[in-house]
Amino acid sequence: MLKERPLGIMLIGYFYILGAVVLIITLFTNASEQFGIAVRFGVPNVPENIMRVLVAIISLIVSYGYLKLKKWGYWFMIINSLYFLVVSIGLALQYNQQPFIGNGIWSIIVLIYTLSKRNFFNNKNVTVCHS
């Protein structure tokens, strides 16, 4: 019996793709934030535009593997979420404000959901396309 890819995996994967697209768009705008993407990822000395490109590329790669239910996509999402959670907690303690608290909460949600769906990754009985 074939099982479909869970809705939550699709939502998380597409959310990361949307985030990557937004980051790419912000390269061509004058978007300014109190805390840039480099600060949010714990590397404030990296130039903002380089960090936006790196995060966008990594997000697209991770979301591809995640949406295709690849084992490496599962592990990259876990590692990415753990890293972002640790950095977000550290920054939330330092600044005690958004966006760090929300980023930490998002990372916890992604981690819990992804860990709960680990049996879907690299399972040949899962449908990854909807017709």
Rank of each mutant, 00 (worst) to 15 (best):
V21S: 04
K70R: 15
R40N: 14
L18V: 14
V46H: 00
V46E: 00
A38G: 10
G36C: 01
F41D: 03
Y66H: 05
I50P: 08
P47V: 05
V21L: 09
V39F: 10
F35I: 00
Y16N: 10
I61S: 08
K68M: 13
N30E: 11
Q34I: 13
P44H: 03
R52L: 04
N30D: 15
M51K: 01
N45Q: 15
I17D: 08
Q34L: 14
R52P: 10
A56F: 04
I25Y: 09
V21A: 11
I24A: 13
F28E: 01
F28Q: 00
L18I: 13
L67G: 09
P44C: 06
V55N: 06
L27A: 01
G73I: 00
N45P: 12
F28W: 03
N45K: 14
L23W: 08
L67N: 10
V21E: 02
T29F: 02
V46G: 02
I58Y: 12
E33Y: 14
L23T: 11
I37A: 04
L69M: 14
N30G: 14
E33W: 11
S59K: 03
F35V: 00
K68I: 12
V46L: 02
F28R: 02
Y66T: 08
L67Y: 09
Y74V: 00
V46Q: 01
R52E: 03
I17A: 12
A20P: 00
F41N: 07
V43E: 02
P44W: 01
I58A: 15
I37H: 05
Y16S: 09
E33D: 10
I58M: 13
N45C: 08
N45M: 13
L27H: 00
I50Y: 14
A38T: 11
I37P: 04
I57V: 14
W72T: 15
V53E: 09
I25L: 13
E33T: 13
L60Q: 01
V43W: 04
I24P: 08
L18R: 06
I61A: 10
L54D: 09
N45F: 14
